[in-house]
Design a protein around this nucleic acid. Structure first.
Length: 994
RNA sequence: GGCCCGGUAGCCCAAUCGGCAGAGGCAGAGGACUUAAAAUCCUCCCAGUGUGGGUUCGAGUCCCACCCGGGCUACCA
């Protein structure tokens, strides 16, 4: 295809920079030529010598309102990197697709009465159009949507892998559940009283677990079929369980902890959320807690993001300690607590149980008209004796019911004020035999540790506040603070901590921890323990627009769970007229998943004469985004979720299948760009799935995303009226009637809402619908072109920082492109202003310095710096009659990743037949950077006193001589003794004298 | 409350291993072109790096304390 020089005809007699025509033309060219197609191993034209580079954007959600200029920030950045890497000789994979299941599509569909599949398709089309208009060099042949049946099939397939696997505690990896059955049958593993595995074949492990000769250990064969089934379900990575869930009646669905805000409302919709027990699908992410922390060391991620993940997983080292109940019906039973401070055990002066603790809730078994079903059921099931003494029952019951009724909001505001109630019972502190009171308080949570704590008020702020309020004793066991004023949580030496067998006094905190933990283990009173904040992942939702579970439920009473055969995948959603969720204001209304109203032909499945019911919940939105980066590698494969060879090549850089998976770490995706809002949810879930797939041998790299880059937000000015309500930013003017966008951010401006003339105040925030300050990229493309938009977004500031959109600033980069154009083209005649002359030495040096600066900026993704360097070079060209060819064909290549359309146009005008995207990135000549003479600043005692000009290769002595000779320097040295001479080559000279 | 990130000219941002505080853009001022305006071009203007200490021959950069802005998290024993 010959590039056209017909631009002159199209826009009249002049050859102005016609960005509209140029951009349209090259976007068509890229699409037709498939310029950005990525080749897999085995594809025609695949070059095994090329290194691979996989650059990925976070999966966008195809929203109905389309993109605003904040969305493409990261996409522009990855496009620049992809184009740059391609020019550097990499085989680049840069795909795009859509995370299309989920609540907004469903809600939008409900509002408009259209089927979500229809709205989703429309939205995707619109977004693809917008992205293409920005000149994105995606390999569109690899586009996927999570809603495609061909994609859903493999999402369900992965779920089945999870269901059919368990986490082997000895090998610390996922393995097929059939392996577990084998080990149990061969009695390598026995089963303990609580269903825990006891490792039969390994003497030392048995001992460590206290399981040697354990009389309670049973063999697999001794279990009933039901017990065997239940045991296996206990170990599957996907399992069903009755759990306390976040139930949002208004949305009619349960939510993951991560989808609930701090103040106890739904992240989507901001509706109240309640705790209630429900039988739900769970994924055993907690089994991977350790590896999810440890393997953060394998990846190149921003440290703050790693920290967020570590905090979320929340690993803490401490000890489990058993306290014996002193008297009452439970006398002699243990209350087990987790503590990170076993060293302070001598200072434990009371205990606290969560209001939901088994030993407490049983008090509610007494017939009470106000009693909720849940409490009654729980107690009937557990039939536990309570530790609450008869005289305390009324208060305790009141307290528990009050705590239960409290919403999360109340619990939060109550942090300052501790509440609690005494049970009437006492426990024995195992180290000193003292009887300590057992309390109930909602500052102890049921979901963490054992739901019970030993309270050491002297050295824990929460316990201190509680003890002060309820007049409980405070005993100092670590010196260094002032216990009469506040809790002391710092380091120090132990005091008041000895019994007949163990003496911690005068030891440091870390030493005391080790010593007392060993003692507890010897006495069988406790053991070292690692505890995590991370909970298992609640994986079902009561929604229509999500992946159906590939699961069938057998008829009662067994209600066996039967996975759908792999060959029957995908399980597609049934066509339904009414897919609305059933929302309610009543927190106790039972969940009614929309699929419950699906036709019987879908719901019921008959196999071998048995009628099964399909699972009626659907998977959460996160499911599809957990593995999409793998599907891009091989998006149309109908045999596997991803072909093995392609997977090895793109995820580990190994083109040759004959080589085994190497020991050296693999990097997965080479660059993953997205917002920090996914730091814990998506990135943790995806890593978890990836590790399971890795353990089961389906992928070759232990981590999915080798390098992560978090982009900042684009903020925008917004305007509020006197009631504080945001008004359309586009309708705001200043005192002179100028649009706000021309003068925003300047001091002393007053703003008015155009319609009513009402004064409004200016502030700024995240761009979007709620602040009415969104700016559509189409608008900017129309007025300035997308090359300008791309440059502006990159030029605003460092990619990782948030910055404020300022429409008035766009002209800066637009002028740059216009000036560039005029440097190449005579606008009157259309003549190409390029000559075969050699550049002047100064220009030659500047060119090579620019190549060096831009290349380095590309490598560090400092695109703002790269653009500044290009502007600087371009400004130097304005005075030239014609551009020397060396320069003329280098500059467009440097610019092409950033502003690809104009670069292509200039490139083709210079008669290069192929796309500039296939050109080589320019190299710079180090020798060309050197200058013959350099100017050095000279300091005397650290203060600048003069400058000297010396040959670049001058030696130290010569430089010092020249420095001393400089008149002003000499004057400042007058009468002083030279103490020190510091010469930083090429930088400065500092003479120290007194 | 805890943790993280940031604070350089009127504004957005550069500044390599600690080495002359300024690359670039916006805004502003003056001028050229124009009947005029826009666009374009030329020239100019502007800070000592949030505050206070410390280390150093030398600190925007390293250390300590504090102030301001943004984000995350929130009784996790």
């Amino acid at each position: 295809m010959r590039p056209l020089c017909a631009a002159a005809d199209a826009c009249g007699s002049t050859m102005k920079y016609d960005f509209k025509q140029i951009e349209q033309r090259w976007q068509q060219y890229w699409e037709q030529q498939k310029t950005f197609r990525a080749r897999n191993p085995g594809d025609e034209g695949f070059d095994s010598q090329q290194p691979k580079f996989y650059v990925l954007d976070m999966f966008p959600y195809p929203s109905g309102v389309g993109l605003h200029v904040g969305h493409p920030l990261g996409y522009i950045a990855t496009d620049i990197v992809a184009r740059y890497k391609k020019m550097r000789g990499y085989n680049v994979l840069h795909p795009m697709g859509f995370d299309a299941f989920g609540l907004p599509a469903e809600q939008y569909a409900v509002e408009t009465g259209t089927h979500p599949r229809k709205t989703t398709e429309t939205n995707i089309d619109n977004m693809v159009r917008q992205l293409k208009r920005l000149g994105m060099g995606y390999d569109w042949d690899r586009m996927i949507a999570t809603t495609d049946p061909g994609y859903v099939r493999w999402t369900q397939w992965i779920f089945l892998q999870l269901y059919h696997s368990y986490f082997d505690p000895l090998q610390e990896k996922a393995m097929p559940i059939t392996n577990l059955i084998e080990k149990l049958e061969q009695e390598q593993y026995l089963v303990g009283l609580d269903g825990e595995l006891i490792y039969g074949g390994l003497e030392e492990n048995l001992e460590a677990l206290g399981g040697l000769g354990d009389p309670t250990a049973r063999k697999w064969q001794e279990l009933s079929p039901q017990q065997q089934q239940r045991l296996l379900d206990e170990y599957r990575l996907a399992y069903m369980a009755d759990v306390e869930v976040n139930w949002c009646p208004r949305l009619g669905t349960v939510l993951a902890n991560e989808e609930v805000t701090n103040d106890g409302r739904s992240e989507r919709g901001n509706y109240p959320v309640f705790k209630r027990p429900l039988k739900q699908w769970m994924l055993r992410i907690t089994a991977y807690a350790d590896r999810l922390i440890e393997d953060l060391d394998l990846v190149d991620w921003p440290e703050p993001i790693k920290l967020l993940q570590r905090n979320w997983i929340g690993r803490s080292h401490g000890a489990m300690v058993d306290f014996k109940i002193k008297d009452g019906p439970c006398a002699g039973d243990n209350i087990r607590v987790f503590t990170t401070r076993p060293d302070t055990l001598f200072g434990a002066t009371y205990m606290v149980l969560a209001p939901e603790h088994d030993l407490v809730t049983s008090v509610l078994i007494e017939d009470d008209p106000n009693l909720c079903d849940w409490c009654r059921e729980t107690n009937a099931e557990l039939a536990v004796q309570t530790i609450v003494t008869p005289d305390r029952r009324k208060q305790v019951r009141d307290y528990i019911l009050r705590a239960k009724a409290k919403s999360s909001i109340d619990r939060q505001t109550d942090i300052k004020e501790k509440t609690g109630v005494f049970t009437g019972s006492f426990a024995i502190n195992p180290v000193n035999g003292q009887a300590i009171p057992i309390w109930i308080a909602d500052y102890v949570m049921t979901g963490y540790g054992t739901g019970a704590i030993m309270a050491v008020p002297a050295h824990d702020e929460r316990d201190y506040a509680f003890a002060k309020k309820f007049n409980l004793p405070i005993v100092e066991v670590v010196s260094g603070g002032d216990i009469s004023k506040e809790a002391y949580t710092g380091d120090g030496t132990l005091v008041n901590s000895e019994n007949d067998e163990v003496d911690l006094n005068d030891q440091t905190v870390p030493d005391a921890k080790v010593r007392i933990t060993n003692w507890l283990e010897e006495k069988g009173l406790g053991k070292a323990q690692v505890q995590f904040k991370l909970r298992d992942w609640l994986f079902s939702r009561q929604r229509y627009w999500g992946e159906p579970f590939p699961i069938l439920h057998g008829p009662p009473p067994e209600c066996e769970i039967r996975p759908v055969d792999e060959t029957d995948l995908p399980v597609e959603l049934p066509q339904m007229e009414d897919f609305k969720p059933v929302g309610s204001d009543d927190p106790d209304a039972p969940p009614q998943p929309p699929l419950g109203r699906a036709p019987g032909s879908w719901k019921q499945v008959e196999i071998d004469g048995k009628v099964y019911t399909r699972e009626l919940n659907t998977m959460p939105n996160w499911a599809g985004s957990c593995w999409y980066y793998l599907r891009y590698i091989d998006p149309r494969n109908s045999e596997r979720l991803v072909g093995a060879e392609a997977e090895r090549y793109w995820m580990s850089g190994l083109p040759d299948t004959r080589h085994p998976i190497p020991d050296t770490r693999s990097n997965g995706v080479d660059l993953y760009v997205g917002g920090v809002e996914h730091a814990v949810l998506h990135l943790l879930y995806a890593r978890f799935w990836h590790k399971v797939l890795f353990d089961l041998g389906h992928v070759s790299s232990p981590e999915p995303f080798g390098k992560l880059f978090s982009q900042g937000y684009i903020q925008a000015y917004c305007y509020r009226d006197q009631r504080g309500i945001a008004v359309e930013a586009a309708e705001v003017v200043n005192a002179e009637g100028k649009p706000a966008s021309d003068v925003q951010g300047q001091k002393g401006q007053k703003f008015f809402f155009r319609g009513r003339g009402e004064p409004v105040t200016e502030e700024y925030g995240k761009m979007g619908k709620s602040l009415k300050n969104a700016i559509a990229p189409d608008e900017i493309c129309e007025k300035y072109g997308c090359d300008t938009l791309r440059l502006y977004e990159m030029y605003m500031g460092p990619l990782e920082q948030s910055k404020v959109w300022n429409t008035a600033d766009i002209v800066g980069v637009h002028r740059f492109l216009n000036r560039l154009w005029r440097n190449y083209i005579n606008e009157e005649s259309g003549e190409l202003l390029v000559s075969d002359d050699k550049p002047s030495p100064e220009l030659h040096r500047l060119l090579h310095r620019t190549i060096s600066r831009v290349t380095e900026a590309m490598e560090t993704m400092s695109f703002n710096v790269a653009i500044a360097a290009l502007i600087e070079l371009n400004n130097e060209l304005v005075s030239l009659e014609k551009l020397p060819r060396e320069l003329a064909d280098t500059l467009p290549r440097l610019l092409s990743p950033l502003a690809p359309h104009v670069a292509e146009q200039l490139w083709s005008l210079m008669d290069y037949p192929h796309s500039i995207a296939e050109a080589h990135w320019p190299a710079w000549d180090e020798a060309a950077l050197a200058e013959a003479t350099i100017e050095l600043p000279v300091q005397v005692n650290g203060k600048l006193r003069g400058r000297i000009t010396v040959p670049a290769d001058a030696d130290q002595d010569a430089i010092i001589e020249a420095a001393k000779a400089e008149p002003n320097v000499a004057a400042h040295l007058e009468g002083k003794t030279l103490r020190k001479q510091i010469v930083i080559p090429g930088r400065l000279v500092n003479l120290v004298a007194n």
